[in-house]
């Protein structure tokens, strides 16, 4: 199968009066790693839950792995690995017992040898009889990933798998994700980290329940039409609070000693920074906006829309 693995249209989820996911369309091709970004509470978890049959959408339709997300939940569940945002394995079972339980629920054959192999790959073979609750955050996440690929799923939905994990463990985690994608597994992974977003083949950005941007990192940056400047020199970083609320500026932030400013309209942006450009000690240069610039910009836009509605 090389068609779309996820293909959903117009997904809507409401809680009471609030529309938490608002007409989200998403198509992901086989073998791709898609980063799912968005501020807290923007509806990432809710969207993932609708895709794996844990929540019933209030509107919209679509397929995962060719199965209808509403009518064929069980078929999707059998071929999908879903890693919950909160650690979902049993802390009062040992590492091995957890993996064996998962293997049995999926009715896998050769439970012992599969679990042995998974433990070996993880490097947890010597600790297999420890209680899972005793593992550190990074290990827990790797164990959770091992548990959700035990049944050899074709699709992985990972919900903030690296939140609160140190950089080394994060890197190891992402190496594993790419190894899995190399085997043809499709991955949709939510994250807040920009460096992780850049490791994805493509990105979907959601804010206030609306899908705001879609494509590769370059496509999103080029398509945004955002302009950016970087200022360097003594005290450049201290200008951020002065520029942040200026007309025409979406974001102004200090990066080390430098200042990074961006805005959607070139003329307005130039006008905003003009007073500071007069300072001969500062060097101003055009620069390519970063993904973060764009996300902050999109978030503001989505908020304005949400408030206008």
């Amino acid at each position: 199968m090389s068609g779309p693995v996820i293909d959903v249209k117009g997904l809507v989820k409401r809680y009471g009066q609030r529309t938490v996911v608002d007409h989200v369309d998403l198509t992901i091709m086989q073998g791709r790693v898609c980063g799912f970004l968005g501020p807290n509470g923007s509806g990432k978890t809710t969207t993932l839950r609708m895709m794996c049959g844990l929540l019933t959408p209030d509107g919209g339709s679509g397929t995962c792995l060719g199965h209808d997300i509403i009518a064929e939940r069980d078929a999707i569940k059998r071929q999908t690995g879903y890693m919950t945002q909160k650690f979902g394995l049993y802390e009062d079972l040992t590492i091995r017992e957890n993996l064996e339980f998962v293997a049995r629920v999926y009715r896998l054959d050769h439970v012992r040898s599969r679990v042995d192999a998974a433990l070996e790959r993880l490097g947890l073979a010597t600790r297999q009889h420890q209680l899972t609750g005793a593992l550190s955050g990074g290990w827990k996440q790797r164990l959770a990933l091992a548990a959700c690929v035990l049944h050899e799923p074709k699709l992985l939905l990972l919900d903030e798998p690296t939140a609160g994990v140190d950089p080394k463990a994060r890197r190891a985690f992402w190496d594993e994700i790419h190894a899995l994608a190399g085997q043809g597994i499709t991955v949709l992974v939510s994250t807040h980290y920009m460096d992780e977003a850049e490791r994805c083949h493509e990105i979907a950005y959601i804010a206030y329940g609306k899908l705001m941007a879609r494509g590769t990192a370059d496509e999103i940056i080029d398509g945004s039409g955002l302009k950016a400047f970087v200022a360097s020199g003594p005290g450049a970083d201290r200008l951020a609070p002065l520029l942040r609320d200026a007309v025409g500026v979406t974001a102004a932030a200090a990066f080390g000693l430098d200042l990074h400013v961006c805005g959607p309209d070139e003329a307005a942006l130039e006008k905003a920074i003009a007073p500071f450009r007069a300072d001969p000690a500062l060097a101003w240069e055009r620069t390519r906006p970063t993904l973060e610039d764009i996300f902050i910009h999109l978030m503001g836009e989505a908020r304005d829309n949400a408030e206008a509605a």
């Binding site: 879903y82 979902g88 394995l89």
Partner: peptide, 13 residues
């Protein structure tokens, strides 16, 4: 309460 229910429900039981 421990959040294991979501994981359980995501599996085919």
């Amino acid at each position: 309460e421990r959040g294991t229910m979501e994981n359980l429900l995501a599996m085919p039981v």
